[in-house]
Amino acid sequence: MRAAVVTTFGGPEAVRIVETALPEPAAGQVRIKVAAATLNPVDAGVRAGVFGGEGRQNGLGWDVAGTVDATGPAGDTPSGEAWSVGDEVVALFFGMGQPLGTHAEYVVVDSDAVAKAPTTVDAVHAATLPLNALTAVQALDLLELTPGQSLLVTGAAGAVGAYAVQLAAQRGVSVTALARESDEEFVRSLGAAHFASDAVGAGSVDAVLDAAILNETALAWVRDGGVFVGVIPQAAPAPVRGVRTTAVGVKADGARLAELAGLVDEGVLTLRVADTYTLDEAPKAHARLAEGGVRGRLVLIP
């Protein structure tokens, strides 16, 4: 099969399309024939060598939407749901340090990372869900907010931020969206009660979900005794004024992903695709991501 990988670090030109053996699922795994796979900033980090991996093949791609192609022995989820060949699914594949990722024609994924795909959208849109929506919902879990409390989401028009706005609003949290002025109408359509394009008052919100990675700047906007959650593991700012600070490290979770897919079908979550590329065009997609200003996700179609 064909897959996009990096073996030497660099810019978009470092992405290579290689021929490799078809992976076989082991016990508790399924193989998915990839219909679509999203390009995320973490892939650019892998390509540039941010996460290490010098001297080995590094796979690209964490998100996948496609069809179950094969199951390994005892290929059931812990919940007891068995996946069958032909099932249309989405999954988060934790790709850090792996020789192959979802930017390939096939990918093997742990069964408990898989969920039924949303039925109201195509595979290209469904592929944008797993990594960013799971990051958002797991970050909200860390915040432990109750209805009526206030939350500032930085980078609210981005992929993680937009999901966070929608999910928090659904929970009854009063959301202030921090984004560019040109994105005000969009983030308000997601459920943001308030909008800011610049600094907000110091100590003015119960919590911050810092999808824009503003760190200490955003921390100053949390009230004394509030909570701050970042999106880069082990990189949260030090606590001050009794503010609890932490960062989300996204985990594959098929059951939670199934809930998110259900929210897509209910119209709660909006999926955004900026553009599509063939697998052979992966370097071109990386170049577009590097230009910045992408609204929605770039998606590869093998």
Rank of each mutant, 00 (worst) to 15 (best):
68 V>R: 01
220 A>V: 03
175 V>F: 06
262 G>W: 02
239 P>C: 04
170 Q>R: 15
168 A>L: 12
277 Y>R: 08
5 V>N: 01
242 G>N: 15
70 A>K: 09
4 A>H: 00
45 G>P: 10
105 E>T: 10
67 T>P: 11
204 S>N: 06
222 V>H: 02
252 A>S: 15
138 Q>E: 02
140 L>N: 04
240 V>S: 14
142 L>E: 12
106 Y>R: 11
60 L>V: 08
36 A>W: 05
52 G>M: 05
264 V>C: 07
9 F>H: 15
293 G>A: 10
197 S>W: 11
223 R>K: 15
136 A>I: 07
185 E>G: 07
213 I>K: 12
29 Q>F: 07
99 P>F: 08
44 A>G: 11
208 V>R: 04
61 G>R: 07
178 L>E: 04
232 I>H: 09
95 G>P: 00
36 A>I: 00
126 A>V: 10
286 H>G: 03
189 S>E: 08
212 A>Y: 02
184 E>K: 13
179 A>Q: 04
206 D>A: 13
149 Q>D: 12
221 W>E: 11
271 L>F: 12
223 R>I: 05
244 R>H: 14
206 D>T: 11
5 V>P: 00
242 G>V: 10
35 A>E: 06
182 S>H: 12
298 L>Q: 06
212 A>R: 03
270 T>C: 05
184 E>P: 03
141 D>V: 05
236 A>K: 01
56 R>H: 01
17 I>G: 04
186 F>N: 02
185 E>P: 04
120 T>F: 00
173 V>Y: 07
132 N>H: 01
171 R>K: 14
116 K>Y: 06
59 G>P: 03
208 V>T: 02
287 A>S: 13
7 T>W: 06
47 R>D: 11
129 L>F: 04
239 P>I: 09
287 A>P: 08
199 A>Y: 10
179 A>I: 10
172 G>H: 14
60 L>C: 05
181 E>C: 04
39 L>H: 07
167 L>A: 05
25 P>C: 06
159 A>M: 07
150 S>Q: 10
301 I>D: 01
243 V>L: 01
42 V>N: 00
94 F>W: 01
8 T>S: 13
202 A>M: 06
85 V>W: 14
113 A>N: 12
189 S>I: 12
155 G>F: 05
109 V>C: 09
219 L>W: 02
202 A>V: 15
92 L>I: 03
65 A>V: 06
180 R>K: 10
236 A>G: 00
175 V>E: 09
300 L>N: 05
275 D>K: 15
117 A>M: 10
110 D>E: 15
36 A>K: 07
57 Q>W: 07
109 V>S: 09
136 A>K: 10
16 R>N: 00
203 G>P: 08
190 L>V: 01
246 T>A: 15
22 L>M: 13
173 V>F: 05
144 E>P: 03
285 A>E: 04
24 E>S: 12
